[in-house]
């Protein structure tokens, strides 16, 4: 499983998500988390059709299985990826 976090430095809700994503990474080392700065990687943002950030895309075997836009608490991010703590 892979979680892609599309963000930008100038985006407030993305700043809110930074500590949440860090906490997620700590709690779920089994999930690969990639944080993509859309200013640096425009092509990747375009490839995934990102039209609003923060945008979280969940991949299973390289295929997109879930997606959610906007800031959310850890609980919801875990629900999106389909993992539980502990």
């Amino acid at each position: 499983m892979e979680l892609i976090d599309f963000y930008a430095d100038w985006c407030g809700p993305c700043q809110m998500m930074k500590p949440v994503v860090e906490e997620f990474e700590k709690a779920h080392p089994e999930i690969t988390v990639k944080s993509i700065n859309i200013d640096d990687e425009e092509e990747l943002a375009e490839k995934y059709g990102v039209s609003s950030i923060p945008c979280f895309v969940v991949l299973k075997d390289g295929e997109e299985v879930a997606r959610e836009v906007g800031a959310m608490p850890l609980k919801k991010l875990e629900k999106l990826v389909g993992v539980k703590r502990g």
Partner: peptide, 11 residues
């Protein structure tokens, strides 16, 4: 459709 230009404008 965006409700936040500072979030999505740069796209």
């Amino acid at each position: 459709i965006s409700y936040c230009a500072t979030c999505d404008g740069a796209l």
